[in-house]
């Protein structure tokens, strides 16, 4: 079975991915966590849409450590997705396709994923040093004042994830 995919993921690929499947992603993802989500939702409330660069794209719940000279990024593992549950449904509704994080999601998030045919992936939690080796480039694209919580555009190669909620809203977690 094919396990390497380029980002952005096409709808056909998203439709075919099953919970528990381990895949490697290459391409662009955008980091965003608590404060960035608060701001993104405020942008949606004001403008009626999410910023154009996020449409059809992947958000990674991550606040990396600083990079040493010569490296694109520092340690960069996933943070707890559940804290973004109050913001995620509106972003999915407005065109966000892929979320990458760790842990379970709320019922509302699952339902919205199903409705909009999105997907939720989990990255190896607490493995930020290992994941930093999968990042080739990184730059801040907005909310610079948030420090580690700014939105970073990162280019990844063979970034390991597991499908946690599929297009049908089914979850890999039992409880």
């Amino acid at each position: 079975m094919k396990n390497k995919f380029n980002l952005p993921l096409s709808q056909n690929i998203i439709n075919a991915l099953k919970i528990g499947q381990q895949i490697l992603l290459s391409g662009t993802i955008y980091t965003a966590r608590d404060q960035a989500h608060l701001r993104l939702v405020n942008i949606v409330k004001k403008n009626g849409s999410i910023p154009g660069f996020l449409k059809g794209q992947a958000i990674y719940y991550c606040g990396p450590t600083k990079a040493f000279k010569g490296s694109p990024i520092g340690s960069c593992g996933p943070t707890t997705s559940a804290r973004m549950d109050i913001f995620a449904p509106i972003l999915i509704k407005k065109g966000l396709k892929v979320m990458i994080g760790k842990g379970r999601r709320s019922l509302l998030v699952k339902e919205e994923i199903k409705k909009q045919k999105g997907i939720y992936l989990i990255a190896p939690a607490g493995c930020g040093a290992l994941l930093s080796k999968k990042v080739k480039k990184s730059k801040i694209v907005c909310f610079k004042d948030l420090g580690a919580e700014a939105i970073h555009k990162i280019e990844v190669e063979d970034f390991p994830v597991i499908v946690a909620i599929d297009v049908k809203g089914k979850s890999v977690f039992k409880q």
Partner: peptide, 13 residues
Amino acid sequence: IARKNKLAICQDT
């Protein structure tokens, strides 16, 4: 990897 590269084990330091 963290030990060899003097990198944070987890980004949440």
